[in-house]
Design a binder for these strands. Structure first.
Lengths: 163, 163
DNA sequence: CGTGAAATTAGTTGACC
DNA sequence: GGTCAACTAATTTCACG
């Protein structure tokens, strides 16, 4: 019962050792394979093989440094719920492209429910956020309305998957 | 005992080279210092010194592997806007602790505006999400109401800061 | 800040149980 | 899957311009 292949569409079957490896690497990817092997109670060779496979299969998307926005001078984060003018495919695609191109936008999700899109924005201060709404939102005729929620406390930020 | 808010920390002064280094490492932290130096048009020694400093100062919070939730069998992500029963400090702190303890919760922000909290949840499927709402939300007497938005498309996920 | 060299550590590969 | 050994590459430290 340790094996639970899941059926997300492109899900890759992962065994318990894969899961332990991913759990560790999602917290620290700079460990040597020897250290990793110790933490997951396996051998370095096995970790080398598995990590390579997990990268090749796209389970591991990227290996990155996480930067503290505040320390880097971006002290304002906002969650913006956006409703488009119409649910037309061309408008939706155009909007996605704009969000992908906007450097202030860290995350953008198309969603069901009250909004069409949820966008997370990280900028220096309230003036920069005002400029963002003016240049990217008010200026955008595809947007019917949007509601901003300014972050007061980053309670949890763990861009990792519980596996 | 109330928790110390995490924002309001001081920004660290960064020069152009620091910014270029951070921009690269936020996309790939497995480069050798020689490669990094080449990309930022500097020397390996300087990169070594600066990266160590950026880590010590907390500008770089962590170095991690990014896992594709779908490939790892978690094909449902939801954004949940939550309103608490009362804006009492003890209720707020208790809620924060619960969200930090919940493995399905990747991100949790306390916000101004329509909601008190915005929570991002990643689980296997709709059944697991239903279980999450039942066990963590409906079961929670501190929550007055919540609104879920199910992710249809992860348009952009770049947990990095534009610097 | 930059170079280069030496010492140490880590990553890679292949043979083998 | 696991170990071991040998090879290559990267990191660390230091002296120096």
């Amino acid at each position: 019962m340790t094996e639970t292949p899941r059926n997300g569409r492109n899900a890759v079957p992962l065994d318990e050792l894969d899961r332990r490896i991913l759990a560790v690497l999602q917290q620290d990817n700079r460990l040597s394979f020897a250290e990793l092997a110790e933490r997951v109670a396996s051998s370095a060779a096995s970790c080398v093989r598995r990590v390579r496979r997990l990268r090749e299969e796209g389970v591991i998307l990227a290996d990155i440094a996480l930067v503290d926005p505040g320390r880097a001078g971006k002290s304002l984060t906002a969650v913006v719920n956006i409703e488009l003018e119409a649910e037309r495919l061309d408008l939706v695609d155009a909007f996605k492209r704009e969000m992908r191109a906007a450097p202030e936008v860290n995350q953008c999700y198309m969603v069901t429910g009250d909004a069409d899109f949820v966008v997370m924005v990280t900028v220096e201060d309230i003036a920069a956020f005002e400029a963002f709404t003016r240049d990217r939102l008010y200026a955008n005729p595809n947007i019917r309305k949007f509601r901003s929620m300014i972050m007061l406390d980053r309670v949890k930020f763990e861009p990792r998957v519980a596996i």
